[in-house]
Computed example of a mutant assay.
Amino acid sequence: MMLSPTPDTDLPISCAGCDDPRVEELVRDLLTRLADRWTLLTIENLDAGPMRFSRLRERLPGVSQKMLTQTLRQLERDGLVARHVHPVVPPHVEYSLTPLGHSLGEVVCGMWQWVMQNGDRMEAARQCFDARVKETV
């Protein structure tokens, strides 16, 4: 995959051969969403199956009710999470990944696999860099 600079930022975002501004906008939006603190953890937890809000919150230490609500709403808006309200009193709400959400989870899993294969090399490169920087200071 060859990345090329975008016209407005000089940042390499779009893949070579993809000049569709709509695709670029969606990729930027998705990268922003995935880079937030709770999105990937939410997707990872929901990969195990449907979950109630309270259970999901228990599995995400440090997330506030407000932030988890915002994350779930955005994932639902993007079509990655489904919200199912069971008609009982009190209401019973479950969240689950949609097929689209599962497919994104598979792609993101590739990043974990890459780190497992290359993490040692990356850490060694960081140590070399840090040592060089220390010498120049």
Rank of each mutant, 00 (worst) to 15 (best):
M1Q: 13
P5H: 06
T6I: 10
P7H: 02
T9G: 07
T9N: 08
T9Q: 04
L11W: 10
P12H: 04
P12Q: 04
I13A: 07
C15P: 07
C15S: 12
A16H: 10
A16Y: 07
R22S: 10
V23K: 02
V23D: 08
V23Q: 09
E24Y: 05
E24C: 07
E24A: 04
L26W: 05
V27F: 05
V27W: 04
D29A: 12
D29K: 13
L30G: 08
L30K: 03
L30A: 14
R33M: 14
A35T: 07
R37E: 15
W38M: 02
L46H: 02
L46K: 01
D47R: 15
A48F: 08
A48V: 08
A48S: 14
G49Q: 06
P50C: 07
M51R: 13
R52N: 11
F53I: 02
R57V: 04
R57D: 03
R57H: 12
E58G: 09
R59E: 15
R59H: 12
P61A: 04
G62C: 02
Q65C: 05
Q65Y: 08
K66D: 10
M67R: 09
M67L: 11
M67Q: 14
L68I: 02
T69V: 02
T69D: 10
T69A: 10
R73V: 01
Q74H: 13
Q74L: 12
L75F: 04
D78L: 13
H84M: 09
H84S: 14
V88R: 09
V89H: 11
P90W: 06
P90M: 05
H92P: 00
V93A: 01
V93P: 00
V93Q: 01
Y95G: 06
L100W: 11
G101H: 07
H102L: 14
S103T: 14
S103Q: 14
C109M: 15
C109D: 15
W112A: 15
Q113P: 05
W114F: 14
W114S: 10
N118Q: 12
N118G: 06
R121P: 00
M122Q: 04
M122K: 03
A125P: 00
Q127R: 12
C128P: 00
F129D: 06
D130W: 00
D130E: 09
R132L: 11
R132P: 00
E135I: 01
T136W: 03
V137N: 11
